[in-house]
Write a protein that binds this DNA or RNA. Structure first.
Lengths: 347, 347
DNA sequence: CTGTTAGCGCTTTCAC
DNA sequence: GTGAAAGCGCTAACAG
């Protein structure tokens, strides 16, 4: 049997109250000598409070839940790492929940976590969530009165904290970098048109064009699916479009672009400039290291925990939307375009 | 305030005992009518038992802890996915613990998990654990009487369950595949000589040579560090060794080999055959897709949970060492060697 | 068939 | 300064 607080009481001759008091640093009026005796006994009997009992009475467990779709996806595993590191450093624990992007698992995990008495939830909503499902999740969370912060998703209506990245800025930075290098006809390989992050990147791209007073041309946009095939398909599609650079909305499709170009004997960056998004680990080690846009995923994990704990500890607290800026990672896949040679307008 | 069992009792007019009985399916003698009333009330008041209270009295939490060094490492995130999936399907939960390979974090997490009342622990020991530290961890686990299964590490002495992969077999399979393709002079790029998995792969390699009655030549072995640089260094080292194939002990170093060969104008598999180990995701999408050895990591996660839960539920139960066999994934990086053309001895 | 009661291990109010 | 006692929400003997 584990040592309990009673054991310490018996062993030292004090009451459980006294033990509890000194263990919880509420022992203003208890003399050093008593404290010492108790601490010695704790050490000697190797006492560690049963956190189930503590949680039951304090209604705090120092535990949070992380709901994501799939830890084996590098985005989420990086996030989870940040979350876990942040938890540990503050003495908290983490319950991991994979939903495989199923909304009903979101729902059931929220309930399970509530039953386990987590103090808060970090919530990456399932991708299959439409407006109604989203609302349902949020509603449940609110009914259960569990503090939560949404990750990678911002909801105007839902009064809650979010940690997101500014994809528009990411798209803008990528496009502008290309423009500054003298590219004017820039093809895009987007993600599925339903996804907000893809749409935002596109908006950023448009904004950069506007700044350069270059008309937006729909035929330069190829709707992809964030996979290699999309990249390859885009190259075929762009064949007759006189494009000097491609902005792929993620590295996977950038890689597809790269391979298909190579197959056609077009080299990067000489024959075509290429920029990606995500900075997945092999982007750095390709033959032509990929210039790309990196999201501070780990930091988002860390920050979301900070925000969540703050809300937990202050009971509610101010809801915030924390926006992270992606960073342009310059490597070797972008060269100078025609406008640059003609005396472009580098800012 | 959350609905409690008392609320259900008041609402229905029955006692908490009766409620508890029907909720726990121990209500043999309770009439349908009563049951129905209770279930209706449960539904209506949206009652969910507080698992902290349940855990406190039952001494079971349906929760396990997973101690690994780093979720953001793809090996562990894949494992974690298997573990979590397996937990969910059985109604269990998972507390995730990252140690960054620090032994003292192993120790503190074990204690924390115990305090939280987990029913068992899946334990990937920190890499920095020497014999003494290893013993210390195991000792603690045993003192705490927490069922645990070791992952990726087998300890003869420690009477406990393990889930491991047969790296010797992996090394054997890779080497034999090369031999069957007519290669006789096969270079190896190993991992650090201290790591057991690397040593095991080497033993498998030797065993295959023996089977073919080919003398083992120490100069064909290049000690690497599981990184790209190791692969590049190996190519330089092998330059004057008349080797027709390289067995890299992981895909990262295989990739290093591949790149350096390319730089030297040697093509794979025409100029040199190459085989890797791990099957990391980009091995498949390289220009020359890499033939490699794949560990069933996800399945190991699933299986380790199965074993752990079995031990938890049977109180102790039989300790087992579950050995997984790696699989050879044949792609395009291995060609035929000199012995094959001279009429080799394919089995 | 159902209810009373005694905990599980802890915190906290209140009294001495 | 310290302790008795109530109670967190639940389960499980034991009665009846």
């Amino acid at each position: 049997m584990r040592t309990t607080i009673k054991d310490i009481a018996n062993y030292t001759g004090f009451s459980v109250t006294t033990i509890s008091l000194v263990l919880n640093n509420k022992a203003d009026k208890i003399p050093r000598s008593t404290k010492n005796k108790i601490m010695d006994a704790v050490e000697e009997l190797n006492y560690h409070p049963n956190q189930l009992a503590v949680g039951l009475v304090k209604k705090r467990t120092q535990t949070i839940g992380l709901i994501i779709s799939d830890v084996s996806n590098v985005f989420f595993s990086t996030l989870a790492k940040g979350v876990e590191d942040s938890c540990r450093s503050q003495g908290w624990n983490l319950i991991l929940c994979n939903t495989n992007d199923k909304h009903d698992r979101d729902m059931s995990y929220i309930q399970v976590l509530a039953n386990k008495g987590v103090d808060g939830i970090l919530f990456c909503m399932a991708r299959d969530s439409d407006k109604k499902k989203t609302e349902e999740s949020i509603q449940l969370l609110k009914k259960l009165k569990i503090p939560f912060v949404m990750i990678d998703r911002y909801l105007e209506e839902a009064d809650c904290s979010s940690v997101i990245v500014d994809h528009r800025q990411g798209g803008y930075a990528a496009a502008k970098y290309l423009l500054r290098h003298g590219h004017r006809n820039i093809g895009c390989v987007t993600g599925p048109s339903g996804l907000e992050d893809s749409m935002e990147r596109l908006k950023g791209y448009k904004k950069a064009l506007e700044e350069y007073e270059i008309p937006y041309r729909a035929e330069f946009i190829y709707e992809g699916n964030y996979d290699r095939e999309s990249g390859a398909g885009a190259v075929d599609y762009f064949e007759d479009k006189e494009i000097s650079a491609v902005f792929a909305f993620n590295d996977m499709s950038a890689y597809g672009v790269y391979n298909r170009l190579k197959k056609r004997g077009i080299s990067v960056p000489e024959g075509m400039s290429l920029i990606g998004y995500d900075d997945i680990f092999f982007s750095e080690i390709l033959d032509v290291p990929l210039t790309t846009v990196k999201q501070p995923i780990y930091e988002m994990g860390v920050e979301s925990v900070r925000q969540l704990i703050e809300e937990v500890e202050s009971d509610a607290g101010a809801k915030k939307c924390i926006v992270f800026q992606p960073a342009l990672i310059v490597r070797e896949s972008v060269g100078y375009g025609p406008a640059y040679e003609r005396g472009g307008r580098p800012i």
